[in-house]
């Protein structure tokens, strides 16, 4: 336990000013609009493990990803890479080499005028990693093969590839500098399930052999279950549950987590109706008072409307941290068994 986690995030927040232009605002008599994309979250990722973030679209996952690799400065709070403030770490080339990111939008992150082999080799060159052109070429060929492309594909340009092929190019690039810490924002969303399995197996293998650490973001909860050691559930810029992966799937505690599990599509074609999380999706510009989930929560009461719950160990499953008054007070109806997931979603 003494070892410093590779990544530590403390009370991290990022706000965006989304006000209309000054003149329009004055004419309409409205104030500034501040969007709290990430609003005070804390977690740590021990070396060689995977933390996944899940949650509603727009809840701030990609913003966290960008904050932890230094693409956005935080509005508040700290990011530490191996105990060092991120800003200091990012000033050192060797530390920059060790953290890489796979972006959610593969095409936008590939330079359209470069050949694929140059895109993949760019980090190798930037960090002066291989002395000879031949060694570099061999490395690029190996990376392309690992992601299910051919070394001959290196000659082509990004627009000559399909969506999933582009996504694999950005994975190959992210791996090329031999990173220790990899942020993966929806890394397999454009891949068919077989290629997806190949990439996930590769990631697991790299983790087992080289001790890579991942921050993993995905909407596919089956994939999340396969890769994660721990899972953080985000809602409106905050963490509402943080638990070991298996615990989260077998005994989800926070009402939002439980609702999320209910909404998983039904592969068994039992005709079961999916239950979308009820109620209006709230806006991060004017978040609800107290617990941000209260307008949609079946267990909400007056305390929930007034008081923001802190992230604390859950009653009965203490490995899970939850931010919920009902769980703390023991009025969440005991431990929910994740029956549906346990019984119906077996492989085909």
């Amino acid at each position: 336990m003494a070892e410093t986690p590779i990544l530590e995030v403390e009370d991290l927040a990022r706000y965006f000013d989304v006000s209309r232009p000054w003149l329009q605002r004055v004419l309409a008599g409205e104030g500034k609009r501040i969007l709290r994309a990430v609003d005070g979250i804390s977690f740590a990722i021990p070396r060689g493990t995977t933390l996944s973030l899940v949650g509603e679209s727009g809840c701030g996952k990609s913003t966290v990803a960008r904050l932890v690799v230094g693409l956005y400065p935080p509005s508040r709070g700290h990011v530490r890479f191996e105990g060092m403030e991120l800003e200091r770490a990012r000033a050192i080339a060797e530390q920059r080499r060790r953290m890489q990111m796979i972006f959610q939008d593969p095409y936008a992150s590939l330079n359209p005028r470069w050949r694929v082999k140059d895109i993949v080799a760019e980090p190798i060159r930037a960090f002066g990693m291989t002395p000879s052109a031949a060694a570099q070429q061999a490395k690029v060929a190996e990376l392309l093969t690992q992601v299910g492309l051919s070394p001959l594909d290196g000659e082509k340009f990004p627009h000559e590839f399909s969506g999933g092929q582009r996504q694999r190019i950005s994975i190959a690039r992210a791996l090329s500098s031999n990173p220790d810490f990899l942020v993966c924002d929806e890394p397999t969303s454009a891949l068919d399930v077989s290629v997806q399995a190949q990439i996930l197996n590769l990631m697991k293998d790299l983790q087992a052999r080289l001790g890579l650490t991942y921050l993993f973001i995905s909407h596919n909860l089956a994939v999340v279950r396969q890769v994660s050691d721990r899972i953080g559930v985000m809602y409106l810029g905050r963490l509402v549950e943080l638990a070991p992966a298996e615990t989260l799937f077998t005994t989800p505690r926070h009402p939002y987590t439980r609702a999320l599990m209910e909404a998983i599509p039904d592969l068994e074609m039992t005709g079961r109706q999916r239950i979308p999380v009820g109620g209006e999706v709230p806006s991060p510009i004017s978040p609800p008072s107290g617990c941000p989930f209260h307008p949609r929560c079946p267990l909400a009461n007056d305390r929930c409307k007034a008081e923001r719950p802190g992230l604390i160990p859950a009653r009965a499953t203490e490995q899970s941290l939850t931010a919920c008054h009902a769980v703390e007070e023991g009025r969440d109806g005991g431990l929910p068994a994740a029956q549906r997931i346990g019984t119906t979603a077996t492989a085909l």
Partner: peptide
């Protein structure tokens, strides 16, 4: 392809591909 769908109800060591 159908055999490669990741299972939701359990964690497996190696995913079928």
């Amino acid at each position: 392809l159908m055999a490669s769908i990741p299972p939701l109800d359990r964690k497996v060591e190696h995913l079928a591909q």
